[in-house]
């Protein structure tokens, strides 16, 4: 078994592209679900409209990179308004239904034959990330062939492109966490948390519940859209099926794993999620390859690790529902 490789990929995944893009989108979901109690099951759609907004603006319309970012952000805001206006007056369950359906509609439009000229069908779009890599300081300013260090015998190195994506990703995570931190200790955040507990009580104290839920939906959606940009730029492409419902479910796992309504909860959750996933895959794949495990082949390892993720989530909810950072007292009250 090649332990060096296993440890190297596992450690790299703790800060890698996936961790960053899911982490930032999960911060947005935490604003919805953790702080406001909004059951948004369509977070992947916010990533989708942002990624495609950028892709279509640059490749189809031939406009500059930054315009694409702007279009993506506007698209995320519009999506939030579109899903929120009809549902935020209703009970929480309705938002769940509408967001899950809305996200599927968005994904199916992206992959539809009718709009193949614009969105590129099931193959998606590519070739819109040049503007981003043109300003990559790790390529054009610093000149190293790769960035990182050796941890004893374990090499931890990223290519200049990966380094640039990861760097930008962590800056965005820091910004998003900072904004969430400031907001959630302000009176504005207090209203959000109160809405999570009881909307009618908040109304009776003179606050417009609808307005705050809409602000929360837009904020979380815009933060989620950053994850979509990172995906598109890191892989230099977008495909419709990346923004499916399971992407949203991974983010729920991360939020709960790290601890809902905690500033760093989703980030830690995302790191743990990918570390465990990569570690389990690495160990199992090596064990199968080396002949220690004989009842399955390497192709089945990929499926097995998702089964283990599901099992882990179930165990987590039973034994530590408050997540890593959560406050046990809060959960005890909530489960009352």
């Amino acid at each position: 078994m090649d332990w060096i490789t296993i440890i190297s990929t596992t450690l790299k995944s703790a800060v890698g592209v996936e961790t960053v893009l899911y982490g930032v989108a999960a911060i947005g979901l935490n604003v919805h679900f953790g702080y406001t109690g909004l059951l948004n099951f369509g977070q992947a759609a916010f990533m989708g409209v942002a990624g495609y907004g950028l892709a279509v603006t640059v490749t189809v319309m031939g406009l500059p990179f930054w315009v694409g970012i702007g279009v993506g952000l506007v698209a995320a805001v519009l999506l939030a308004l579109l899903m929120g206006i009809p549902t935020l007056h209703l009970r929480a369950d309705y938002l769940a239904i509408v967001t899950i359906a809305g996200a599927e509609i968005v994904r199916l439009i992206f992959r539809s034959v009718a709009f193949k000229d614009v969105f590129g069908g099931s193959d998606g779009q590519r070739g819109f990330s040049n503007g981003f890599y043109a300003i990559n300081p790790f390529e054009h300013f610093f000149t190293a062939r790769q960035y990182g260090f050796n941890l004893g015998p374990v090499p931890l190195f990223f290519s200049p492109r990966q380094t640039w994506v990861i760097f930008v990703g962590w800056v965005l995570i820091a910004l998003a966490c900072g904004v969430v931190f400031l907001l959630m200790r302000s009176p504005w955040g207090r209203v959000l948390k109160a809405i999570r507990e009881d909307e009618d009580a908040v109304r009776s104290l003179g606050k417009s519940v609808f307005s705050y839920k809409m602000q929360s939906l837009v904020l979380g959606g815009v933060i989620g859209s950053l994850g979509g940009f990172i995906y598109g730029l890191a892989y230099a492409s977008v495909q419709p099926d990346v923004f499916g419902t399971e992407t949203t479910f991974y983010m729920y796992t991360m939020v709960i794993l790290g601890g809902a309504a905690r500033v760093f909860g989703p980030v830690i959750g995302s790191m743990l999620f990918w570390v465990l996933l990569v570690l389990v895959y690495g160990v199992l794949a090596e064990a199968v390859g080396a002949g220690y495990i004989t009842f399955m082949d390497v192709n089945q390892v990929g499926a097995l690790r998702w089964i283990l993720v599901g099992l882990g989530l179930i165990l987590l909810l039973i034994f530590r529902p408050q997540g890593i950072f959560g406050d046990k007292r809060e959960i005890a009250i909530d489960a009352r």
Binding site: R190, K193, A194, E197, D200, A201, V202, S204, E330, I333
Partner: peptide, 10 residues
């Protein structure tokens, strides 16, 4: 309210 509405986790 007749049925009290304390905001439990605040």
């Amino acid at each position: 309210f007749q049925l009290t509405k304390a905001l439990s986790r605040l």
